[in-house]
Amino acid sequence: MTTTAPTDRVHNRVRLALLGVRGEAPVHRSGGAGPSDDGHFLVNGRGASLPYNPDSPFVLDSAGRISVDGADLGLDVEPVARPRFYDLSTDEGVAYEKIAKLHGKDVLATTVVQTCVRYGESERCRFCAIEESLQRGNTVAVKTPAMLAEVAEAAHRLDGVSQMVMTTGTSNGRDRGARHLARCVKAVKKAVPDLQIQVQCEPPAELSTITDLYEAGAGSIGIHVESMDDEVRRRWMPGKSQVPLDEYRAAWREAVRVFGWNQVSTYLILGLGEKDDEVVAAAGELIDMGVYPFVVPFRPLAGTLATDVDHVPAPDTDRVEEITRRVAARLRVAGMRGADQRAGCAACGACSALEGGCGA
């Protein structure tokens, strides 16, 4: 007979995110830009991306319950079912699954250009494996607007997908890939007008491109810095760190002006080397600007330099939990919830322990 362990939602979500589960899901991803090799689950009805770890203390049983050392955590866990659109292909024979993936229960996600000018070893972000899935044959290098419109329509019609995330590898152009994103957004919105879309890109050198993305039909935008500590940026993101933080701040301010308060977000990855107070202060600066700081723990990802070369472990669970709670407290004071974003990572929330998008 199993016993029931005391439950704390944030504590358990942090530990699950970092330690994963012994139990695989039919919907999973590997390689790509991150944040991990994971499976998609619903935990008490909320989306959660959990790494598969055969050494995890968390065991998922056939009844959809998670236990530790025989103690039931009081969590109902349901693997996300394989979507029907995965069974389809384009007329040219490209599987829909290679064009866009289901994330969580109702989020369609795609990397519109699966290559990055910063992917050489001297410039590559050490937590990123954006070209790994391409090398494995799991995706195609460039998704056309027509491809994405076709897949989005099917995913919306067959599987109830309600939002879409479009990210991109960085290009050599001054727009850093944003113009192709805009063309893709416009095509998808024409095919599925009520599908909410978030775009993700580096700060474009021409800030007017942010307006182009909005006018194409994107409802929210992610401009991801990952860390606001320049020393950490140079160590973890040698190429991307060449874009000054002031360019990020200018892009965030312009994005808030165009998309609106709490429709702009950025990743802050926990476990890259900053002090706790520095991370919380950075999150506070972002909140004051109207930018949602989507705090997620670093998780080892196969194919990355951090995992395969540096052998960097996941951060301490207690530290991640403490930082998450402190950032959540600031978000609550500001009245800022990821769930209020029209689309995107913060709206989904599966990769973070921020409860309901803001409260821990």
Score class of each variant (00 low, 15 high):
residue 204 P to Q: 00
residue 110 T to Y: 01
residue 222 G to I: 06
residue 129 A to G: 14
residue 100 A to H: 02
residue 179 R to N: 13
residue 180 H to Y: 02
residue 161 V to W: 02
residue 163 Q to K: 02
residue 131 E to R: 12
residue 124 R to I: 15
residue 122 S to T: 15
residue 141 A to V: 10
residue 203 P to C: 05
residue 206 E to A: 13
residue 209 T to I: 14
residue 165 V to G: 07
residue 220 S to M: 02
residue 189 K to W: 03
residue 201 C to I: 07
residue 208 S to Y: 02
residue 132 E to D: 12
residue 92 E to T: 15
residue 166 M to Y: 01
residue 162 S to A: 09
residue 100 A to Y: 03
residue 126 R to L: 14
residue 191 A to F: 02
residue 199 V to F: 03
residue 163 Q to M: 05
residue 212 D to V: 11
residue 184 C to M: 01
residue 161 V to T: 10
residue 221 I to K: 02
residue 152 A to S: 15
residue 218 A to C: 09
residue 128 C to T: 09
residue 177 G to W: 00
residue 128 C to L: 06
residue 202 E to T: 08
residue 210 I to K: 01
residue 189 K to S: 09
residue 121 E to P: 15
residue 117 V to N: 07
residue 193 P to F: 00
residue 167 T to I: 08
residue 138 N to A: 14
residue 97 E to I: 08
residue 134 L to Q: 11
residue 158 L to Q: 08
residue 219 G to H: 01
residue 174 R to V: 12
residue 155 A to P: 13
residue 146 A to P: 14
residue 109 A to R: 04
residue 177 G to Q: 00
residue 140 V to A: 11
residue 190 K to L: 11
residue 152 A to G: 14
residue 162 S to R: 03
residue 129 A to M: 05
residue 127 F to Y: 14
residue 148 L to F: 05
residue 223 I to N: 07
residue 119 Y to A: 15
residue 205 A to M: 08
residue 151 V to G: 08
residue 120 G to K: 07
residue 182 A to C: 12
residue 193 P to W: 00
residue 183 R to I: 03
residue 134 L to N: 13
residue 132 E to L: 04
residue 103 H to R: 07
residue 161 V to N: 05
residue 188 V to P: 09
residue 172 N to T: 14
residue 224 H to R: 12
residue 176 R to T: 11
residue 202 E to K: 04
residue 129 A to Q: 05
residue 149 A to Q: 04
residue 102 L to A: 11
residue 108 L to Y: 03
residue 205 A to Q: 06
residue 123 E to F: 09
residue 196 Q to R: 05
residue 169 G to N: 08
residue 94 V to T: 15
residue 122 S to N: 13
residue 182 A to P: 13
residue 138 N to W: 10
residue 94 V to D: 07
residue 210 I to Y: 02
residue 187 A to V: 11
residue 171 S to P: 12
residue 96 Y to R: 02
residue 107 V to Q: 08
residue 132 E to V: 14
residue 170 T to L: 11
residue 123 E to C: 13
residue 177 G to E: 01
residue 170 T to C: 15
residue 153 E to R: 11
